[in-house]
Amino acid sequence: MTKPAFETTVHGTPGPQGSKTVNAAGAMYESSAKVKPWREAVKSAALDTVAYDETWQPIRDAVRLEVVFTLPRPKHHFGTGRNAGFVKPSAPEYPTGKPDTDKLLRSTQDALKDAGVLLDDSVITDTVAAKRYVLTTADTLSHPGAIVRVWRLTQPKEPQP
């Protein structure tokens, strides 16, 4: 595959976006307290990545988005006593519980739009997403976060006035 048009590493705990809660006054807010810090982390990493490219324009054509989310293992996955720090043999290999992959993608896509990487998240036509635990595969980080890659599916067009 060709080189991605955009690639960045985001540090922080991935936060899902999607579920809304209504308070007694009728105001809606995100039910996950992690979504705002995550969106800020993605936006900050994206802005840092494109900051030195004076010709960068938000991508307006079809793209493929790939995100590998690295999640922390729950404490109960680790042994105790002399086995503290070691993952139990009974611990699952993959994070099959919450947060949902689609909700993690939603917050990440919105942050990429806010950072000016994408003109709109509707330009994403192909998506590949994975949830992994820390240091379990080649594309996982040594701490919570994500690796984000965006490929253009067509040749870039000239910006419209």
Rank of each mutant, 00 (worst) to 15 (best):
V22G: 00
M1A: 14
N83Y: 14
P89S: 13
P58C: 02
T96K: 14
S142A: 14
G79P: 13
L141E: 07
P72D: 12
P58D: 03
F6V: 02
A111N: 02
P92F: 11
K88C: 07
P4Q: 12
A25F: 10
L135F: 12
A111I: 03
H77Y: 15
R39T: 08
K20S: 09
T55C: 01
A84P: 05
L141I: 04
L112R: 02
P89Y: 09
A111K: 02
E66V: 14
H77Q: 08
K103D: 10
P89T: 09
R73D: 07
G26K: 08
S122I: 07
R149C: 03
H11P: 00
K34Y: 10
A25V: 09
T137F: 07
D102A: 12
H76K: 07
K34H: 10
E66D: 10
K157Y: 10
G145I: 04
V67R: 01
K157M: 13
R82F: 15
P58N: 03
A46L: 05
D120F: 11
H77G: 04
V10E: 06
L47I: 07
A27I: 15
R39S: 07
W38Q: 01
N83E: 13
G18N: 06
R64Q: 13
E93C: 06
T2F: 12
G85R: 08
F6C: 02
N23G: 12
L135Y: 13
T70L: 03
E7C: 06
A146N: 05
A62C: 06
A33I: 07
A46S: 11
T140Y: 09
V68C: 05
G97V: 08
P92I: 07
S32C: 09
Q57G: 01
A130W: 15
S122W: 08
V35H: 02
L141C: 11
E7N: 08
K88T: 09
